[in-house]
Computed example of a mutant assay.
Amino acid sequence: MARWFGKSRSSSHDKAEAAAEPENLEPLGVSDDLRLAYGRNHDPKLLRGSIQAAELAVQVYPVNDIRHAAALSSLCMLHRLSWERDREAPDLVKAVDYGRRAVDTSRPGDPELPRHMSSLATALQEVYDSTQDEESIDEAIALYRGCLDIMPTGGSPERVEQRLSQKSNLANSLLRKGRVSRDDDILNEAAEHAFVALSETPADHPMHAARLINLGGALLGLAQNGHPEHLSGSEDMYACGLRELPAGHPARAGVEQTLTMIRGLRRQRGY
Rank of each mutant, 00 (worst) to 15 (best):
A89D: 15
L120M: 07
E134W: 10
R101P: 04
D104Y: 04
V96K: 08
A102H: 04
V127K: 01
H79D: 07
R87A: 13
R100C: 13
A140S: 15
L143T: 03
H79L: 03
Y144C: 06
P111L: 06
P111C: 06
Y98C: 09
L124H: 01
D91I: 02
I150F: 11
G99C: 10
D133G: 07
A102M: 08
R80W: 10
V127R: 00
C147V: 14
D91Q: 15
A142Q: 15
E126G: 09
W83C: 07
E126N: 09
H79W: 08
S106I: 06
Y128K: 01
R80N: 14
A123H: 01
M117G: 00
S136G: 05
V103P: 04
A121E: 04
Q132E: 14
L124Y: 06
R107F: 02
S106M: 09
S119K: 01
L124G: 01
L148G: 04
E135L: 14
A102D: 04
D110F: 04
P114D: 05
V93M: 10
Q132D: 09
D133I: 03
Q125A: 02
Y144I: 00
V103Q: 09
A121D: 06
L143M: 10
R115H: 05
C147E: 05
E134H: 09
V96P: 02
L81Q: 02
W83K: 03
D133L: 08
Y144M: 11
R100A: 10
S130K: 14
P108Y: 08
I137N: 00
L78I: 07
S118W: 02
I141D: 01
D110H: 09
R145E: 14
E126S: 10
E84M: 14
R115I: 01
